[in-house]
Design a protein around this nucleic acid. Structure first.
Lengths: 356, 356
DNA sequence: CTGAAAGCGCTTACAG
DNA sequence: CTGAAAGCGCTTACAG
């Protein structure tokens, strides 16, 4: 910008006042006469004064900024979450005029050094971390740095930091229970590598529900693939090639479920009739899947706002462990779940196995 | 953070040097002896020194930060673009260690005052504006403020600023030509309010293609609705209720096209057989639509990086008008385009109208 | 090659 | 109620 911004000095000169007086007037100090306060504010408006934030923040010793660590995308389906989350964070921050910085790790290799540098450079007063892996080293690092942070998601031991998560284990218990109630006993799990805690949580829910229902755990029915629609398709093909294929499946995400539907349709089966499929996320575009995808829907909209509020509280001095929020997902029935039929998919199953 | 960050002062004391010397060593000034430069750098690493950016930026008079003006979302389908765009911007900026600030307008009302304050506060050295409306006041404002900016999209007169856009007019010419080549002569346009320039551009392409092909322009075949899947569905229902309905349609976006498919299926018609539908964006989830959506695909991935590079060049002093980049979309045929049949959808069309 | 000085534009005790 | 002083943590001419 070349149109030299008005500084406090210029404003003060214009008013015939001194710089500190003008500063205090603008910041509503009580010891400034109402008359001059008004006069100063009017002049500030007229001249279009806006305080230099670098100077202000250096002076007050706060960056008035929080950072969002952008996750790297493995698949080409961009994350529909990100925009919503950022919007929510922005809403929470705007109440106090804080800024939102988006931080990309150049490579996962040096993400830690980058976090450390960011925290130490005074650019942010706190960080939002998403998609933690098991024993996420970023969490330990932030604790060591004594830099406030909140986690979108959880790790296995999550007592001593702040987080916001949806109960993936509970959701998958609900999903499996629903399928069992529909008569299914061979329910498969389509998942992604278990390094991400959410992948483990949801698998745990799947396994617990099988136990609760007295169903035995068949390792063949657990298929782990890349976290994408293509991964879901590959995993589903593995399942359908089984000598004794499942009649229902729960998928780690809606995106993976979309791949599952593609694999099922490709073999001439009808999802929701021949095989039931339940996704996870409740994304809007599931409505337009073929057929519309039944899913465990989670309340996305509030995550960003809650995380922002939490982080601000912690920066204000709150105990992080006081800010832990677990949301529940709910079953959103569309068209891919249905009662067990002795359907096409089972035709090639041998008599012996059916009797079991 | 409470673990008091190491300052230049501490580092200098630790080394038995003076603050400016340490500063110059770290910044690779030529007049520092190689020996001490190394010594200083090693110590900085060991103590985990990272310069306070507020101080640094105040001193050098640059925020080393650019801002991205986050568009507000009308529909609940979150923008899959945003994450990709931010990632691209981040890549461009990281080369020079600039930061990326995400700026949300509280309401569209005071977006302008907010932009002005942001520009004047020295928080950003430039701004990325997306989704311009016709005669977008933000562009004029940025020019008046002499604050560098780039636009993702264009306005009607776009000679004197920097922008990156995909040629929507050309894309819709291509889409309509394709449908005409398949035998269609009643091609409809499903659009959104024309306040957004991209909505106008694509309508222009539609109209131009009709002319080019010697087809008359039927105002009934232009349906404007809300920019969402629901909007697309409503618009399509209007079209299907016409006495003389279209046999093909082009939709402003993939999202709207998804709504169109839903409306078509709801009447028992088969998209791509009874009515052809072409969307725009080339979003991945179109593959999973029912049936997979034919679309004008655009090269999304590069937009962010290009916009970031452009903005940095302009901040360095380049003439903005030198940075204008128009990409082309290409037809991505999936399953919703097909040859004209005298199909179900035409059954109730009177003989007289068919002869026309 | 290194040090002493000044300044970036704010804020905040401290006087009067 | 307002002014004079000091400081936030850097960078950058200017001496020597």
């Amino acid at each position: 910008m070349s149109g030299k911004p008005v500084s406090l000095k210029i404003l003060a000169a214009h008013l015939g006042l001194t710089v500190p007086t003008v500063s205090r007037a603008l910041n509503n100090y009580a010891d400034i006469s109402p008359a001059t306060r008004e006069r100063v504010k009017r002049a500030a408006d007229e001249l279009g004064y806006s305080p230099n934030q670098n100077a202000r923040r250096l002076s007050i010793g706060s960056s008035e900024t929080i950072g969002y660590l952008m996750p790297r995308f493995s698949s080409s389906i961009a994350q529909p979450f990100v925009a919503q989350l950022l919007q929510g964070l922005g809403e929470a921050l705007s109440k106090r005029n804080w800024d939102l910085l988006v931080i990309h790790a150049d490579s996962s290799k040096d993400e830690l050094t980058q976090i450390e540098r960011t925290a130490r450079s005074g650019r942010v007063g706190g960080l939002v971390i998403s998609r933690p892996i098991k024993n996420d080293p970023r969490i330990r690092l932030m604790q060591d740095l004594k830099c406030p942070f909140v986690v979108h998601g959880r790790t296995a031991s999550c007592d001593d930091y702040a987080w916001y998560d949806v109960d993936g284990e509970d959701a998958f218990v609900t999903a499996v229970n629903h399928l069992v109630a529909l008569g299914h006993s061979r329910v498969a799990f389509v998942g992604a590598p278990l390094q991400y805690q959410f992948a483990q949580d949801r698998l745990n829910g799947y396994q617990r529900a099988l136990q609760d229902n007295g169903l035995s755990l068949d390792q063949d029915l657990i298929q782990i693939a890349e976290f994408s629609d293509d991964g879901g398709e590959i995993a589903t093909n593995m399942l359908l090639d089984l000598p004794n294929p499942p009649t229902a499946m729960v998928c780690l995400s809606d995106t993976m479920a979309l791949g599952a539907l593609a694999a099922i349709r490709a073999r001439g089966f009808v999802p929701g009739v021949d095989i039931s499929v339940i996704g996870y996320d409740g994304l809007k575009f599931g409505e337009h899947a073929n057929p519309p995808l039944t899913t465990m829907a989670q309340p996305q909209a509030h995550a960003g706002r809650r995380l922002g509020d939490m982080l601000l509280s912690i920066i204000d001095g709150d105990d992080p462990s006081k800010h832990q929020e677990l949301q529940r997902a709910h079953l959103l029935r569309r068209k891919t779940d249905g009662p067990l039929h002795v359907a096409k998919v089972l035709n090639h199953v041998s008599e012996r196995e059916k009797i079991q």
